[in-house]
Nucleic acid binder design. Structure first.
Lengths: 160, 160
DNA sequence: GCCTTATTGAGACATGGTATCAATAAGGAT
DNA sequence: ATCCTTATTGATACCATGTCTCAATAAGGC
């Protein structure tokens, strides 16, 4: 379960919802040859608006509030599709590995606050440097990476 | 530096089994107040010797070869215990998130070869630097991290 | 060797995710 | 706008992975 999901916070200042446009996601689906349906709109909206990483199960629960007939399998299929299209990405961590956050256009490092549960996106230049360095010293060819940082976000430190 | 990459060998040069001593693991269990049992010895041996990340299910399968009556739940419990004691760590990645590798005493970065599946341990200084840098620029307090690198290992590149 | 109790094994159970298939609804063609 | 084709959906059965229960076993202190 997501920690802090029921806590009341001043503002969601970590999740970059402003930077995500659901309409762009629909365009992406359309351009990939998929039909644009109402379930998709519903789910895209849910993921794009959420302040917290969401699991498929949680997304289903939320979806049924506005669209009661939504099927469970459909949500799982949709989450899969969104992940494959790179629109959302899996959070590997303390809450298990089945929660997702929207992807930002640029490659970014994920930070998860262990106190309020929210995600933040950090500039990934340091990661790119690290990769290049490790490639050099190890001799391995690095084609992909997965980094997550955990701790107390600036807000939570302040309110502690 | 570990690596232990010996370019003359085609197999088994990545996992640092030499550096892991099953006896130490038993000592760790003992010192944590747990009883030392034969299942534990069996499983510790399996994890310490494996060249590849193993899931609980895989470890169970292997365990039954030498100890047919081994119970499934026992293996899951044991894997849990080993993870909690920090003796093995979870690999988050392409094979799902339920495989484990032995932990090395020092904090190290994991590299997984997408071609042969083996794990390698890289020096983690770059990661520590990255964390410090990100802490500074983000204002978050970072208490834990999770990094994994994927690609083609030196061996596989050579043999391609 | 005895006694206490942590650990085990077997199997029932829970959870998270997938496969099947008839019904529905996108969206191009008319 | 209406029809037609077929991707998508919803319901449900299913599977895989992991957990719980509880009687039987075996560590290890005495």
């Amino acid at each position: 379960m997501i920690r802090g999901i029921n806590k009341k916070h001043k503002v969601g200042c970590l999740m970059p919802s402003k930077r995500i446009n659901p309409a762009d996601w629909l365009t992406a689906l359309d351009e990939s040859g998929f039909r644009v349906t109402t379930v998709q709109e519903t789910l895209i909206d849910i993921f794009a608006r959420s302040e917290y990483p969401l699991s498929a199960e949680q997304a289903w629960e939320i979806a049924r509030q506005s669209r009661p007939k939504t099927g469970r399998a459909t949500v799982y299929r949709m989450v899969d599709k969104l992940e494959n299209l790179g629109l959302i990405r899996r959070v590997h961590g303390y809450q298990g590995c089945s929660h997702f956050v929207p992807t930002l256009p640029e490659l970014m490092m994920l930070f998860i606050c262990l106190s309020c549960g929210r995600a933040d996106y950090l500039d990934s230049q340091p990661l790119e440097d690290l990769i290049q360095h490790s490639e050099h010293t190890s001799g391995h060819h690095i084609t992909d990476s997965r980094l997550q940082l955990f701790g107390d976000c600036a807000d939570c430190q302040e309110n502690a």
